[in-house]
């Protein structure tokens, strides 16, 4: 098994890459992909803590949380893609900086 802090550093890099995608991309679907990368980094972190700590602390809550995160992410992807398809039908664009209908 690799040491815990190596896993945490890899996950921190993955999370930062996801943040970079959210902050630099224009296409809404690609922003969603980057959000999924961040979610994966977080759930990998929780699984690492659970696996390294469940002998000492006697529970595996981190693994259950990772399972729930996967379910929530599936719901979120379906809803967000519905919104993107809807926006594309109304505004003919999937770029977040061109959807400024609510911008004052």
């Amino acid at each position: 098994m690799p040491p815990l802090d190596h896993i945490l550093i890899v996950n921190a890099v993955l999370f930062a890459i996801g943040v970079m995608g959210v902050l630099t991309r224009r296409n809404a679907v690609l922003i969603l992909l980057s959000v999924e990368l961040m979610l994966n980094a977080v759930s990998l972190n929780m699984v690492a803590f659970a696996v390294y700590g469940h002998v000492d602390f006697g529970n595996i809550t981190g693994i259950v949380f990772a399972f729930f995160i996967i379910v929530i992410a599936a719901a979120e992807v379906a809803l967000a893609l519905g919104i993107v398809v809807r926006t594309f039908r109304n505004r003919a664009t999937a770029n977040v900086d061109e959807v400024n209908l609510l911008k004052w």
Binding site: V19, V22, L23, T24, R25, R26, N27
Partner: peptide, 14 residues
């Protein structure tokens, strides 16, 4: 494919 604030985004993530 990238917005105008790309350098700021890269700097913030780093």
């Amino acid at each position: 494919l990238f917005g105008r604030s790309r350098p700021i985004g890269i700097a913030a993530s780093l």
